[in-house]
């Protein structure tokens, strides 16, 4: 009996230590029946992409509250491409200003979730992206 489970990596790149949001989202995804791999704090883009490959995740959720998203996110996108793993989709959570949102859209990131987002919307977004 085949049972395709959605696997999601929740990662915190960079230097900020605020992981409450990441934990709330992880918990919500767990309750939606996903397998959530949580990396913990202070991850480099290299660590995140390597973990995503080893764990064969369908999706990566990056939680960034440090303001460094315009450096960190493109780096993750590039590394995924270098590793031929661009089939793994991405979403971002945290404090992202509107003008940056547009810039991120341009490099293919359409899931940007700010404060106050209903976790149901994140679940629906990932389900649609992954299509399992």
């Amino acid at each position: 009996m085949s049972d395709d489970k959605i696997r999601v990596l929740v990662a915190k790149p960079g230097l900020d230590g605020h992981d409450r949001g990441a934990k709330v989202v992880s918990r919500a995804l767990r309750d939606a029946g996903f397998e959530v791999i949580y990396t913990g704090l202070h991850q480099s883009a290299e660590q995140i992409v390597e973990t995503a490959i080893q764990e064969d995740v369908d999706h990566i959720g990056l939680s960034i509250l440090s303001g460094a998203h315009m450096t960190l996110v493109p780096r993750v996108v590039d590394l995924l491409r270098e590793n031929k793993a661009e089939d793994i989709s991405l979403s971002i959570g945290g404090i992202i200003p509107d003008e940056d949102k547009e810039a991120l859209n341009k490099i293919g990131i359409d899931g940007v979730f700010g404060p106050g987002t209903d976790t149901k919307d994140i679940i629906a977004f990932i389900k649609k992206k992954v299509g399992k």
Binding site: R30, I37, Q47
Partner: peptide
């Protein structure tokens, strides 16, 4: 979880130095 089929897999948090 026996209720939702979901899981939080958190063992890697303690092994993050090994991932690269």
């Amino acid at each position: 979880s026996p209720f939702t089929g979901g899981a939080i897999l958190g063992d890697r948090i303690r092994m993050s130095g090994l991932s690269t």
